[in-house]
Write a protein that binds this DNA or RNA. Sequence first.
RNA 1: GGAGGGUUGGCAGAGUGGUCGAAUGCGCCGCACUCGAAAUGCGGUAGGGCAGAAAUGCCCUCGCAGGUUCAAAUCCUGCACCCUCCGCCA
Length: 425
Amino acid sequence: MIDIKDFDKNRVKYIEAAKKRGKKFSFLFNEPAVKKDTIASQIVKTKQRELELLQAKRNAANKNISALTFDERKKRIVELKPLSEQIKHLEHEVKLYASESQDVFAWPNTPKDDVPVGDDESGNLTLREVGKKKKIDNPKDYLSLAEPLNLIDMKRASQVSGSRFAYILGPLAQMEFALVQYAQKTLLKEGFTMVVPPVMIKEENMAAMGYLNGGGENETYHLTKDKLYLVGTSEQSIGPMHRDEIFKEEDLPKRYLSFSTCFRREAGSYGKDTKGILRVHQFDKLEMFSFTLPEKSDEEHEFLLAMEEKLWQGLDIPYRVIKLCTGDLGWPSARTYDIETWMPGQNTYREVCSASTTTDYQSRDLNIKVDRGGKKELVHMLNGTAFAIGRTLIAIIENNQQPDGSIAIPPVLQPYMTGLKVIKA
RNA sequence: GGAGGGUUGGCAGAGUGGUCGAAUGCGCCGCACUCGAAAUGCGGUAGGGCAGAAAUGCCCUCGCAGGUUCAAAUCCUGCACCCUCCGCCA
């Protein structure tokens, strides 16, 4: 969440920042809501002060009560009764008004100043295009290539699980674990710790990560019987891992490379990308996650992006780097870079990676701090995709397709493919 | 699924109605001793809010929420979480 104290002082700043996120968030800053909150917070302040004075009075009168004689004590108790009732009354009032003003604090993170302003993805900025597109005559899309080779089976998956599920088979399934090996080889020397996290997390943690706001709840699988959420990305499991902890300064940056299955309802995307494995309810993903000093988070953000680019360059697949505009940012994100790879079979770029800084938005809720010579400060938290396996496989298939319909395996993956260099019928 | 135990400061752990925001130990910080370190001794050391330039002062917080009381870590009610044993289980 945002800093409520700071919000209270700089309402205008926050409202302007929220407005930058575009029309779809206008419910945040509509006048009545803001006005109601402002008034409530002022009342709370006044009453709180009043309450504290009364409490001080009561505490003082109670301080030496046990030293009094029986009669004195009796007298004192009678005197204190009305004061005590007054206090109780005020406490209730403060709570009432406080709950009113809290309503507004499901507020998104404030975008960084360098993030371009825009209503939706049309405002996104292409920073650079990297890599050379291979010349492919009559390129096919990945599904037309994969199904004849029996690498992806959508039909049986839909019989078993319904739409938006897939069986990934044979060499393509092997390639998933080749990617895991390749990512480890590239990233572990950069100080990442490999982790396989829980994929079911408690409600409080899903909330703290900021994914239940702004329609996020609708996108998650919620196991209400057990009060657990299935993660949509392992970021949601890695952040809370250090909940209520205080890092030593020298322990930062703390970097994790996490492998997990991810679950998404895709509730808002009916009819979109319905074929194949591009958009499915379940996929595996390798995710990078960093805890950093506040002043180092921008640097770390560039680092995560650099790691993503390194991985794609190693696969020799052309991509472009996108800086998302304010309207396209996720709820907890202050800045996001996407990587989109070239998909020759679809004659377009598709998103395969995303790297975000959430600054102190998540760490505030999770209470994750760093000890700076006695002073404790909230850490910054960042996340970035290493490989979203499904989409990575798509990119590899389409970019490495051969005229005969076979698929060349990228050299960096070959060591992990039981001797295979090409996938063919 | 059945039975039981627990939740107190960075950690361990005392505390069953008032002088308890909380003994003691460990850890950490400072000082002394030392060439230096260890050991030892002395002192300090929870978080948040409000006021203040600061010193400091006041308020809140002993899992959470309600209740009893002049007064709650302590009594009552509900909830959450953690753990142990039995059963089942990759």
